[in-house]
Amino acid sequence: MPRKKRRTFSTSQKEQAVKICLRSSKSIAQVARDLDLPENSLRNWVRQAKIDEGGPSEDGPLTSEEREELKRLRRENRDLQMERDFLKKAGGLLRQGELVAAKAYEVIEAEKANFPIKIMCKTLGVSRSGYYAWLKREPSQRAKANEELSAAIVEIFDDSRGTYGSPRVTEELEAQGFEVDRKRVARLMAKMGLSADLKPKYRAVDTEPTAELAANVLDRQFDVDEPDRVWVSDITYIWTAAGWLYLAVVIDLYSRRVVGWAMADHMRAELVLEALEVALGSRKPSDAGLLFHSDQGAQYKATRVRETLDAEGITCSMSRRGNCWDNAVAEAFFATLKREHVYRTIFLTQDEAMISIAEWIGIFYNGQRRHSTIGYCSPVEYERNYYAELTASQAA
């Protein structure tokens, strides 16, 4: 059955129908039937006409003229927002000085799924006809060579687990037979957002009241006989093209399960509190008590963290100063995370990293990955076996 065409009405049709309706003693429904008009449409036209007769007003419904003005302003605002968002992405290109049309076209091509071509051309000062003409041209030999070189660079960078800068990448390229200088490699790496800057720049942590250091109650006693008896926690950093991301985890020592985690672009005490709250939201401390162990980081010494632990009846334990072995389980987890997942991936945004890491922890590490310390079971399976045995022994 052919689809019925949607009816449209001119301004004069609407005005005439409204006038007939207002002058008639008939109901709107009857007038609509008589004029073969949609009843709801006619009701809307009549309502708008009455608003228009009242003139502009600061309160109440908008007149037709005001509605048209609002549409225009919204359209302009939408275009301005898109221009602003596009400028953020193209800012590096614009800061290079004189804009080369070919570079502008490359940016437009890369972002055409996110922004209208018309707006991008206007923002970068190039014509749409020029862009479409550029699309039909064959890539230059230099462009083809750069494409091949870029692919090789990405492969080398990935193989190095993101640790090679342009000097080492250049050496590896030359070993593979490429004739290339380091400046060109550095330029292509920068264009693709590849950086071997593995050490995060120093970020000042907001100072806040801190509590006294806790004793090292755990004392490297990593073998625990029941879940939720000892939790260990630590913070690490993850590189993304959009900046450093910080991850805090809480790990149950019995099963090695990550029972709580949080990620943010800062490493303030809130990061630890969020990870702790996630753990407490899904776990119940053992009847024998719960020990929470960490290093002596400012976040863990924060009064708010200690108050939260005290309120939950959790005993606080801290590693000796500068001794990473006192928190070896958390350190080992971060090493596994980075070796098996982070170093195999280039995260363009922090949101992308958050989703990917959360999936790796929640689905793979906790639920699937076999852990040598717990008899090559996954943490979830190990806990399931514990509670099955506990239930069986209580029923006996």
Score class of each variant (00 low, 15 high):
residue 189 M to H: 01
residue 133 A to E: 13
residue 116 P to G: 09
residue 104 A to V: 13
residue 211 A to L: 03
residue 147 E to Q: 14
residue 201 K to N: 01
residue 197 D to A: 07
residue 209 P to V: 04
residue 172 E to S: 13
residue 156 I to D: 00
residue 194 L to D: 00
residue 154 V to K: 07
residue 148 E to A: 06
residue 152 A to N: 02
residue 189 M to D: 02
residue 113 A to F: 05
residue 164 Y to D: 01
residue 186 A to Q: 04
residue 177 G to P: 03
residue 202 Y to F: 12
residue 136 K to D: 08
residue 199 K to T: 11
residue 213 L to A: 13
residue 116 P to I: 12
residue 178 F to L: 05
residue 128 R to C: 08
residue 151 A to S: 10
residue 193 G to C: 04
residue 122 K to T: 05
residue 181 D to M: 09
residue 164 Y to A: 06
residue 163 T to G: 07
residue 186 A to S: 09
residue 143 A to W: 07
residue 103 K to A: 10
residue 194 L to Y: 04
residue 218 L to F: 09
residue 110 A to T: 09
residue 113 A to P: 01
residue 139 P to E: 10
residue 119 I to H: 03
residue 165 G to H: 03
residue 166 S to G: 10
residue 188 L to D: 00
residue 140 S to M: 15
residue 129 S to Y: 06
residue 134 W to H: 13
residue 205 V to I: 06
residue 193 G to F: 10
residue 147 E to R: 15
residue 172 E to I: 00
residue 118 K to L: 12
residue 171 E to D: 11
residue 131 Y to V: 01
residue 128 R to T: 09
residue 199 K to V: 12
residue 138 E to P: 00
residue 130 G to M: 14
residue 158 D to T: 13
residue 174 E to R: 15
residue 99 L to Q: 15
residue 125 G to W: 06
residue 147 E to Y: 05
residue 145 A to F: 03
residue 106 E to D: 11
residue 121 C to P: 01
residue 113 A to H: 11
residue 205 V to D: 03
residue 167 P to R: 12
residue 173 L to I: 13
residue 121 C to H: 10
residue 164 Y to E: 00
residue 133 A to M: 08
residue 177 G to S: 13
residue 169 V to P: 00
residue 208 E to V: 08
residue 184 R to H: 13
residue 187 R to D: 11
residue 182 R to N: 05
residue 190 A to M: 07
residue 141 Q to A: 14
residue 110 A to C: 09
residue 130 G to E: 14
residue 207 T to K: 15
residue 213 L to C: 13
residue 180 V to R: 10
residue 128 R to Q: 13
residue 179 E to S: 15
residue 160 S to T: 05
residue 145 A to P: 01
residue 124 L to H: 07
residue 188 L to M: 08
residue 112 K to G: 05
residue 122 K to F: 02
residue 123 T to W: 02
residue 111 E to N: 11
residue 198 L to E: 08
residue 170 T to E: 00
residue 144 K to R: 15
residue 182 R to V: 09
residue 141 Q to F: 06
residue 106 E to G: 09
residue 136 K to S: 12
residue 182 R to F: 02
residue 129 S to G: 10
residue 198 L to S: 11
residue 178 F to Y: 14
residue 211 A to Y: 04
residue 203 R to L: 07
residue 109 E to F: 06
residue 112 K to L: 10
residue 143 A to Y: 03
residue 193 G to K: 03
residue 192 M to G: 07
residue 162 G to F: 06
residue 185 V to I: 04
residue 108 I to Q: 04
residue 201 K to Q: 12
residue 129 S to Q: 11
residue 142 R to N: 04
residue 166 S to H: 12
residue 168 R to G: 01
residue 153 I to E: 00
residue 163 T to K: 14
residue 181 D to T: 03
residue 103 K to Q: 14
residue 143 A to Q: 15
residue 131 Y to P: 00
residue 108 I to G: 03
residue 102 A to P: 03
residue 147 E to N: 07
residue 144 K to H: 05
residue 103 K to T: 02
residue 201 K to L: 08
residue 212 E to H: 14
residue 148 E to P: 01
residue 120 M to W: 07
